[in-house]
Amino acid sequence: MAEFLQFCASGLTVGAVYALVALGFTIIYNASDVVNFAQGEFVMIGGMTTVFATAAGVPLPIAVLIAILAAMVIGLLLHRLAIEPARGASPVTLIIITIGASIFLRGLAQIVFDKQFHSLPAFSGDTPINIGGALVLPQSFWVLGGAVVIVIALWAFFNRTVTGKAVLATAANRLAARLVGINTSFVIGLSFVLSAAIGAIAGILVTPITLTSYDIGTLLALKGFAAAMLGGMGNPIGAIVGGLLVGLLEAFGAGYISSTYKDAMAFIVILGVLFVMPGGLLGRASVERV
């Protein structure tokens, strides 16, 4: 039982990170139909910038802010310099552009930072908390708590603010959004900035547990993508559910089968979804009558 709980705890922690990456995919995908494979790089930028800023003597809270802002600026540049000029291109072209951007950002990180693995000190110490025999790191609660706060903040943004509604409207019908006076280019840019911030926060929170390095983005993007697919591309609740499920599958796969196959779980999920239910668990919620 303690073992089971242990796997649950680690699965949920890493699953929360996948969920945040999947949410980033979802926000950009809904606003612009772009599947942004540079999503993992935002996570890397968040972690790496915080590591290097704190190493330079910047206090952690300020380093965190710098890291989030850096990711947001890069998200905006990604949209303005790479996505916006290719407006109207086919989805495949846009996906290839984001893969190119991801490779570019990784290369840049190698130069600006370095090629080593780095960690951050845990925010509230390293003494594990015993829950039913499972030892849970305090940092896991930071990750889970951070994910909950982000989800609530996003919910409030989309449901309670005019700008949030404008993003939803752009996602629902881009032509109509332009016709009511929404600057859809601004909205799509905003979705990149928002996704970048979410990715960066995930990267900062999880770095004390999983370490970070210039190239962690690729695998995170693929796992986040698997999570988004599993939940149903375009559905934010699906992204969260999918992320947690992929995390749990990984933890149980590693624990009960073999840790060698841990990273394969995400790909099995992608294949499974494509073969069995291309719409994902929740699909895209839509009420439509023609």
Binding site: L168, A169, A172, A177, V180
Partner: peptide, 16 residues
């Protein structure tokens, strides 16, 4: 129309 959004949200977005 913005199908997933409520009728009132659709109207309020008209006054964006």
């Amino acid at each position: 129309i913005f199908s997933p959004l409520s009728i009132e949200d659709n109207l309020r977005l008209g006054a964006y």
